[in-house]
Amino acid sequence: MTTFGQQFINALSLGSIYALVAVGLAMVFGILRLINFAHGEVLMLGAFTAVFFGASGWSFPLVVLMTVIATAIVGVLMERIAYRPLRGAPDVTLLLTSLGVSIAVQNAAILFFGAQPRPFPTPAVLSQQIPLGGGLQISGANLVTILSALILMVLLTIFVTRTRMGAQMRATAENAMAARLMGIDVNVVIIVAFAIGSALAGVAAVLWGARVGRIEPLMGFVPVLKAFVATVIGGFGSIPGAVLGAYVLGFGEIFLVAFLPQELSSYRDAFVFTALIVILLIRPQGILGSTEPEKI
């Protein structure tokens, strides 16, 4: 039972990180119909920013703040340089562009930082184990991960549902042309979506670094792939769907390792992606996705 609880915490924490990444993907997709594979590189640059400021002796909260600012800027720049000139281009062009941006940033990072992994300076506080009673314990990193994901999701929900900018964002996602005719500055909405999504990826970068203890130029690929799967499971473009999908994925991965026979546990990714196919066969629009007729 204790093991189950402990694995539950692991899964919750892993799902939280995927959720923070997936939300950024879902927001951008909802508005631009763009699957931004370069989102993982935002995460990677965030991790390197955190290591840079951490090595300069800044305190941890300041490091997180600087990382979030840096990733938000990176996201906005990416939109401005790579995606805005292609506004209105076919979806496939945007998709390929995002793959191109991803590869270009990865290789630039290898050139600048070198291909070797580096340690992530996790503060001692986060490595501590905090007893929860009943034999359960939670590491500082897991606690911070779960709490910060929870708080950020609540804030994001309030932002999207209760603020003027949130309403504009939903309107643009619904129908960009109509939103523009209603006087919404779609460019501002897009910039805000990129900034928020990338800032969340910055938080995810720090939490991921603290969890696994290492960063490297190619580290963004796996989280963004998982986040992509999460958004597909949850229903592409739906923010709550992306979060739900992320937790499904986190729980799937951890519990497959924990409860499958050990000869099979390293195939966890195969099981996860099989689950994806099954879900899409049953609900092609994802768990929370809505079926809307294709706009003409």
Partner: peptide
């Protein structure tokens, strides 16, 4: 226990 090369998360 087993894992796959390239894994970064061994918490389970």
């Amino acid at each position: 226990q087993t894992f796959a090369s390239g894994d970064t998360d061994f918490s389970a």
